[in-house]
Every structure is written in structure tokens, then in C-alpha cells.
Amino acid sequence: MAAEANPMRSDLGLYDYLPWPNRPKIVWPGNKKIAVWIAPNIEFYEYDPPNNPTRTPWARPNPDVLQYSHRDYGNRAGWQRMMAAMDRAGFRGSVSLNVALCDHHPEIIKACADRGWEFFSHGIYNTRYVYNLDIEQERAIIRDAFETVRKHTGQELAGWLSPALSNNFWTMDILAEAGIQYTCDMFHDDQPMPVKVKSGKLISMPYSLEMNDVIVYNTQKVTPRHYGEIIKRQFDQLYKEGDESGTVMCIPLHPYLVGQPHRIDAFAEAIEYIASHDGVWQTTGREIAEAYHASGAYDAMNAAMSAHNAANATEKGIR
């Protein structure tokens, strides 16, 4: 009965198809070829979180001290190494922030703010998911995030990555309605793309699963030096393609992983390699979103998708 009332969908329905060749050209400020942004996930995982029927926070019963302490390493030791490496290569961070961290560790927030880093929201805690929330409850989380980041940093949130990448079908609509400009939750493109929302304008910002150290280290289980290699290769290709139209490369990080002593140097070397190239825009999520609108790319991509849809429909009619 429940399944009939709330059937599963076969499609997200949040974006239209647009082939990679022959898209409208993206021109980045200063005619840079590639926008490179680094998104450290500065997170707080709870010691004794409540359960969510869809996802249990820890594999072991609370307290899962090994996993909890492994995450906590990032906030005691890892973030400093990560930040030093980014400072040396001239990168500001766009912080994917569990906003409760403003309360727990204001010292980390201050160090980021002092460097002009952007804060975007990664929910309240990484152990609180939006699964099974109703829409008003999820709106309360968005309000909390806006208020907390404003209070502690003076910044107005522009970006969003759902906590632990948990989402509901309405999530994108209520983010746009609240004034969020970009989401990092979708991985379907190497360029920013408009998202279909009920109100406002929302951009899907290229984030990345495969450059993300949590995927690299905890899922793919690659070595630190190989991580350095794939960052460089990903950059080389997108840099080359940036001759034709502006590209985006994101490196999502977790200080508890990349900030380990045996991993930091390979990462540091890779981002220094990136920074050593001409035509690289070392930027933030917010700045990319602003440039995407200011350059007309948002409207041009929307128009291109509509045209592609129309052509597709005509062809289907002929068939």
C-alpha cells in the first residue's frame, strides 16, 4: 500500500540532457581555461548520534570509538596540514561545513575565515541525515545552516552539499527557495549546469566523487602517491579541454584523510603542480557560480538544453 502511495521514480528529473560537444562556450574571468576549486569537508561526526531508520550512523554500536576518533583526527591534527599545503599553493578553500562545527571548534572556523575561505553548508552534523524528514523539518535544517554560518562568519550561504549526501526529491527546490545558488550533490557533468527547480536559480556545481579523498581512500583504497597522480592527470585533461571552453575541476577533501602524515605530501605536490600552470583560475564555489551567471553561461546552457529537447522531441515524432 505504502509503495503505491509513494512509488519509486526511475529518474531524478532534475536536469536535461546536453551532449558534451558543441555546447555554448564558457568563458571564465580573465579568459582562464579552468576553474580549480578545493572543497575541504570540515565535519563533525557525533559520539552518540540518534538513529535514522534509513541509515545507521556508525557500523558498530555507539560509541564507535575507532571511527569516531578517526574522524576527530581531522579536527585535531589533519586540518592544519591540509591548510598549510593549500596556503603554499595559493588555494583558498570552499568549506563544506557541518555547521555545528562553528559551535564545537570556532578556532578552525576562524583560521578558515581569516584566509578568506568560503563556507558552504554540509548540514548540521554528518551523522544527521535528511532521510525520512518531512519538508518542514528539512527547511528547518536549511534555516539553521544559514543562521549559524551568518552568526559565526558573517557569510551568506551560497552552496550546499547535503549531509552525507542524503537527499529527498524536494531538496533542490527548497534549497533554491532559500537562496542557495549551487548544489554539489550531483556528478553528471564537468561544467556547471542549471538544475530544474520550482523557484529561483540553482546550479549543479562540478564537485567530484573520484577526486574526493573519501572515495579514493575509503572506497577505492588507493595509495597516497596514486592519489597525487590522478589529481594531476584529471587536471591535465581538463586543462587541455579548457582551450575550447571553460572547465571546472574540484578536489573535495576530508582533513582526517588527506591530512594524515603519510598522505599530505603527495597531495601538496599535486596542487602545487596545478598552481604552476598559466590560465588556471584558483577560485571558490561561490565565485564560479557568480561568474557562470555573469558571463551568461547559465542562460546559454538553459537555452541549449531547451533546443536539444525540442530537436529530440521532433525526431521522436518523426520516428
Partner: peptide, 24 residues
């Protein structure tokens, strides 16, 4: 569907750690 109200309450949201074993 919704979650109980306390899913959006955070009793240990405060300065430092969310337990008393050690200081940050």
C-alpha cells in the same frame, strides 16, 4: 513521513567535544 522532533535537537552542540572524555 517525518522524524520525531528530537532528531533536530542537538543536546551536545556546544564548545569543544560532544562528550566529556577529553578536551579538544
Amino acid at each position: 513521513m517525518s522524524m520525531p522532533d528530537n532528531y533536530l535537537e542537538y543536546p551536545a552542540r556546544r564548545y569543544g567535544m560532544d562528550h566529556d572524555r577529553y578536551e579538544w
